[in-house]
């Protein structure tokens, strides 16, 4: 167990991990205010359960798991599903340059919330299937199937150059 932190030390920890967590949160949610809320809530939870952190070096990873877990709980709410429809693909005729960031952002926006989280955790945070499953509170099989579905959808928008068709659930 990590020793108890002073509030000053935890504030320093917040400053250290905030940018990385915010980037993950934004990629997951696609909205600045929600991303900020998610990071703030997750770090508050991390503060409250600091005794679960086995050693200080593990704290950033722990905070990231808390963030993913908190996001997953948001996704389960009915209002989230109602207010963040993701079942409609963008106009197929829309001219997207798959090599650009806007194209990636657009493609992420077409994914269901949990699929989007899976993609971000695996391909941005570089977590394994097992780690993603743990972070989101779902089975490894679900992570694999969600990854496969998400990549298929993104491939339709971004093309094989960005998301090769051989990719699926093999990013361990």
């Amino acid at each position: 167990m990590a020793r108890t932190l002073t509030d000053e030390e935890f504030a320093e920890f917040v400053h250290a991990v905030w940018p990385a967590l915010y980037r993950t949160a934004y990629l997951m949610l696609g909205e600045h205010q929600l991303a900020e809320d998610l990071v703030q809530t997750s770090l508050a939870k991390t503060y409250a359960s600091w005794r679960k952190v086995k050693e200080p070096a593990a704290a950033p990873a722990y905070a990231r798991v808390v963030l993913a877990n908190t996001a997953a709980s948001w996704f389960r709410r009915r209002s989230w599903r109602n207010e963040h429809p993701t079942e409609v693909l963008p106009d197929a005729g829309r001219d997207l340059d798959p090599s650009t960031r806007p194209a990636v952002e657009t493609a992420l926006a077409t994914l269901a919330p949990r699929q989007r989280a899976v993609v971000v955790l695996r391909y941005y945070d570089d977590l394994s299937v097992r780690e993603v499953a743990h972070a989101l509170g779902i089975s490894e099989g679900t992570v694999k199937s969600q990854t496969s579905d998400a990549l298929a959808r993104m491939r339709a928008l971004l093309g094989d150059d960005v998301v090769p068709s051989t990719e699926g659930a093999h990013h361990d």
Binding site: V104, E105, Y124, L151, M154, E167, H171
Partner: peptide, 14 residues
């Protein structure tokens, strides 16, 4: 491989 996707995600985040 998905290096290109990872790279674009990192660009987006940066």
């Amino acid at each position: 491989m998905t290096e290109r996707l990872s790279s674009l995600l990192h660009d987006e985040a940066t």
